[in-house]
Amino acid sequence: MGDLSWKDFLSQAKQFLEISQKLDDNWVLEQKDSSEPNIYLKCSQKIKCQSGKNNAVELFSVEYHVVYSVSYQVPMLFFQAHRSDGSLLDVEATWKLFMPESKASDLHQILTQMDHPVLFRPFMALHPCRTADVLKQFGKPSGNQVLSFISLYGPHVQLHLQNAYGLSQEYT
C-alpha cells in the first residue's frame, strides 16, 4: 500500500482523466508507446507572478507531467516553466518562483532537475522518496492514488485542482 503498480497507475490515470473531462479541465493523456512507463498525464496553465526588479507582474506558462516512476513505484510530478518571451526557467529561477520561502539547502531535497523518464530531457521534478509513505497514511487505501498524489503535491508548484475532483463517488 502506498506504492502502486504500473497497471494501477494506468487505470487510475485514465479514471482521473475522465473526471477531469467531466469538469472541463484540460488534462490529457500523452502516449509515446504502450510500454512501461511511456504513458503520462499532462496539463498546462498560465500563472501570474510578481518578480523582477520593479515587481512587475510576469506571466509564466507551466507544463505539468504526472509520470510513473519505475524505481519508486509512485507517480512523480515533472514540470517546466517558460517566461512569456519563451525562455526557460533554470533551477534557481524555478525555486524563486515556486518556493520562495524554502532554504536552498532544503530545496535540493525537494525540487531539482531530473531526467524525464519518457522524454529523456531534463525537467524540474518533485522528489518522490516520501510519496509512498505519504500516500500510505491515507487510512483506508485511497480510491485513486493518482488523484491523491496530484492534489497533495500539486499545490507546492501552483497546480491546484478544483474541489469538485474530490466529489466523484466512483472511487469509493
Binding site: F138, G139, K140, S142, G143, N144, L147, S148, S151, L152, G154, P155, H160, L161, N163, Y165, G166, L167, Y171, T172
Partner: peptide, 10 residues
C-alpha cells in the same frame, strides 16, 4: 483530505 482521496489546496 476529504472523501478518502482528495487533498484540497492549502
Amino acid at each position: 483530505y476529504v472523501n478518502q482521496t482528495f487533498a484540497p489546496a492549502p
